[in-house]
Nucleic acid binder design. Structure first.
Length: 780
DNA sequence: TAATTCGCTAGACCGA
DNA sequence: TCGGTCTAGCGAA
């Protein structure tokens, strides 16, 4: 029987020989099947292998294949996707494998031109897909829930699912917040787990979110379920929850997308959309809910659970807040992942675990298929090492003019690297073309030239991404803020921006299939050319250029009315720029501050600007760095504000002196003295034991887990030895007293001195009236 | 197994 | 104890 349904592919997997099973979702959901004969390519070492290869068990067909790049290959069709690993190993005798490492369900979506999470009119014949036509329906709305578990724990012992039960499971969706729990004599752990599974199923949850749930909650629940004889079946087809352990843990269940919000937070931090002191649940909760999460030490969880009454209530609340924090982060992430999934065309569960580079690579893979280009191999480890040897030259940074300046116009190139790549067709395959004359080619200062006739894959996808983003932004204007359509478009343009911004980095990334050193060098060399050219032209036009970094230039104006002249200058530049390249007027700033380095000379990448409405933008200074104490940061912010708003030295001096006084009087909270620093490698591989490493060692001695990525929070205390010896983790501070003189001398003074120096404040002035004469020596 | 380069600064380390 | 050099982290773009 043939039926037609409007639905989207939520999930899919391989099933048997040449079959794909998929979950089609609309208001309900339904299982469907399709076929795709698995295949891969071989770059043959020499001709004449064909007949040998045909004899290999599992090989169905061997054909000559030439793609649109002129690559002459053998296309090897096999009977079963699961056989590819075995067959491709045998192929080493005949040549080099190509496209042998594309997961079968990705292969299916790419070859059939189907995008996950996108509505199609499917024609199904007894559950087999007979046709799929794209509809005009927009983004699907997925049912999402967050969850979190609390487990029994003995003092100082990490919970072990072989021994310690799960006490509670918090659940939150868009309708309710609920905590499943049991107590001795009231219910059982088994019933609780079953009730949770039942909840996920009855709510038809499509997206299950936890925090570190791939590494902890789901493996833990699975293990407990096994012990209790419960079928821990969260999937939509009765298949098992699949757990992959290791440095990058994964948990997958067919038919439901699992998102680990921890990956999401790392992703958002990575692309610069989120900056938290550390990427833990507490920081997420505070950033999103604006208040601190209830604090219960994990040693006390079982005690609270047993105690009942108010304590139990508090534990329930604690558990709820964990789920709530995961939910908050997921609410921001899901629309983005949904759009990225639609763009790249792969399921959310896969996309949510990808780095921006991987996203670019899979996007390119799909587009390469459309162009009939067999994709490049992954580089070997030797090739990767070779690529990493000599770094390419990056952006140009102009030495700024130090001091406090008035009337600054900032202009910057819109999407500089992408627009250069598109306008000059920078692409590994467009390099050294034979179709263009020297004159026709795009030339770069790096010495490489590129075809001007046939657009390369990289410039093509960049152009598509940028145009799609312009389209999405235009479309956004037709919708009211806060509506579903608006939010979807917002997420879409964000996803497009992430992809477009990642392409250059991808090009220069050693592990990239489409790595092109030449294209990357051409990109940065042209970027240096354009910014230097702009600086030169600005100076010729009579502007003093205060500073420039990669894609932006700061023009010093004589007065505010010169803004018009600056805009005219920008327009003139734009007339000379090729293709999509555009210089934009970013803003007018009445005042700006550039300081000198510690070693003298003006400092790059550190400045502060104030807008007409009084908002201050601070770049590079300690204020924006997490590895400085809050007291130093807020003092610096106040001083910068005072300098930019009033420009009088007295106020700045007073701010600093007051803080010093407060520190000596013990009026500063401990929280404001904490320094956050990340541990980036196993402790044993540090050559220099800095304060954060010393503090981490102390945590390890107490049995805490410190891994690369852990953020240590430490305070410098009074006592003998170097600063490291004096550094104690916040948790282990005990009776130790913070070393206030350290905070004055090594935190407050260095963070303000270069700023106040621009107002003519000298070391002596700052130390005047101070009871301790020794202050002067700090500035020596 | 998953973007790079440019730049600043603190604090350890090391030899005189 | 001093100063130079190196290691390490993090931010700007």
């Amino acid at each position: 029987m043939v039926i037609g349904i409007k639905a989207y592919i939520l999930d899919l997997k391989s099933e048997g020989e040449d079959k794909i099973k998929m979950t089609l979702r609309d208001k309900s959901f339904q299982e469907a099947h399709d076929t795709l004969q698995p295949y891969f390519y071989l770059e043959p070492e020499k001709k004449g292998h064909k007949t040998d290869i045909e004899k290999i068990p599992g090989v169905i067909k061997v054909e000559d294949y030439e793609d649109s790049l002129g690559q002459k290959l053998l296309k090897i069709t096999v009977d079963h996707p699961g056989r590819i690993p075995e067959i491709r190993t045998k192929m080493h005798a005949y040549g080099v494998n190509r496209e042998h490492d594309i997961p079968y369900h990705f292969r299916y979506l790419i070859d059939k031109a189907l995008h996950a999470n996108t509505y199609y009119d499917f024609e199904l014949d007894n559950g087999m897909v007979k046709g799929a036509k794209k509809t005009s329906l927009g983004s699907p709305k997925l049912n999402m829930c967050a969850f979190d578990i609390e487990t029994h724990s003995e003092k100082g012992v990490f919970p072990d699912p072989k021994r310690d039960p799960v006490l509670m499971i918090a659940y939150k969706d868009d309708k309710e917040e609920k905590v499943f729990y049991w107590q001795e004599g009231k219910g059982t752990e088994k019933e609780m787990i079953l009730a949770f599974i039942d909840k996920v199923k009855t709510e038809e949850i499509d997206v299950l979110v936890g925090y570190n749930s791939a590494g902890f909650d789901l493996p833990y629940l699975k293990e407990r379920a096994k012990k209790l004889g419960v079928d821990f079946d969260l999937s939509r087809d009765g298949s098992d929850l699949h757990i992959t352990k290791g440095a990058f843990p994964r948990a997958t269940m067919y038919g439901r997308m699992h998102i680990d919000a921890y990956n999401g937070v790392e992703f958002l931090s990575y692309i610069g959309a989120l900056r938290l002191p550390k990427n833990d649940l507490e920081s997420v909760y505070k950033a999103f809910l604006g208040k601190d999460k209830i604090d219960i030490h994990y040693d006390d969880i079982t005690t609270f659970w047993k105690a009942g009454g108010e304590k139990l209530k508090k534990l329930i609340q604690y558990n709820k807040e964990d789920a709530r924090a995961a939910y908050e982060i997921a609410e921001r992430l899901l629309p983005l992942y949904n759009e990225l999934s639609r763009l790249i065309g792969l399921p959310i569960s896969d996309v949510s675990r990808m780095s921006p580079s991987q996203m670019v690579e899979w996007y390119l893979t799909r587009k390469a298929f459309e162009r009939n280009e067999v994709i490049p191999r992954k580089p070997s480890s030797e090739e990767i090492k070779k690529r990493q040897q000599r770094p390419i030259e990056g952006g140009f940074v102009k030495l700024p003019k130090r001091g406090i300046h008035e009337h600054i116009a900032v202009c910057d190139f819109r999407s500089l690297y992408p627009s250069i790549i598109i306008s000059h067709n920078l692409d590994g395959h467009a390099l050294n073309c034979n179709d263009c004359t020297e004159k026709e080619k795009h030339h770069s200062p790096a010495g490489y030239s590129f075809c001007s006739k046939k657009q390369g894959l990289i410039p093509q996808i960049l152009e598509e991404l940028i145009n799609a983003r312009i389209g999405a932004k235009k479309e956004m204007k037709k919708h009211k803020q806060g509506t579903h359509d608006y939010d979807v478009l917002q997420a879409k343009q964000w996803g497009l921006k992430i992809l477009a911004n990642s392409v250059y980095g991808y090009l220069n990334f050693a592990m990239a299939r489409w790595h092109s050193r030449e294209a990357a060098e051409a990109t940065t060399s042209l970027a240096r050319f354009y910014i230097k050219d702009t600086i030169e032209k600005a100076e010729k036009a009579g502007f003093e250029v205060l500073y420039a970094d990669t894609d932006s230039a700061f023009l010093l104006l004589k007065n505010k009315s010169e803004v018009k002249r600056a805009k005219e200058f920008i327009e003139k530049i734009n007339k000379s720029l090729p293709g999509l390249m555009e210089l934009e007027f970013e803003g007018y700033y009445p005042r700006g501050l550039f300081v000198t380095k510690k070693e003298g000379g003006a400092a790059k990448k550190r400045y502060a600007l104030i807008k007409e409405d009084g908002t201050v933008e601070i770049k590079g200074f300690e204020f924006v760095r997490r590895d400085w104490s809050n007291i130093a940061k807020i003092t610096q912010e106040k001083v910068i504000n005072a300098v930019l708003k009033e420009g009088k030295p007295e106020k700045g001096i007073k701010i600093v002196k007051d803080v010093i006084k407060d520190l000596r009087a013990g009026k500063v909270s401990l929280e404001d003295l904490v320094i956050y620093t990340q541990i980036t490698r196993p402790l044993s591989s540090y050559e220099a034991i800095g304060p954060h490493v010393r503090a981490a060692q102390r945590l390890i001695e107490k049995g805490e887990k410190i891994r690369p990525g852990s953020v240590v929070e430490y305070i410098v205390t009074e006592g003998p030895g170097n600063i490291g010896e004096k550094s104690w983790p916040k948790q282990l501070l005990g009776n130790r007293k913070p070393d206030m003189e350290y905070y004055i001398k090594n935190q407050i003074i260095p963070s303000v001195i270069k700023i106040l120096a621009e107002l003519g404040v000298t070391e002596d002035e700052l130390s005047k009236d101070e009871r301790q004469k020794s202050i002067a020596q700090w500035f020596s």
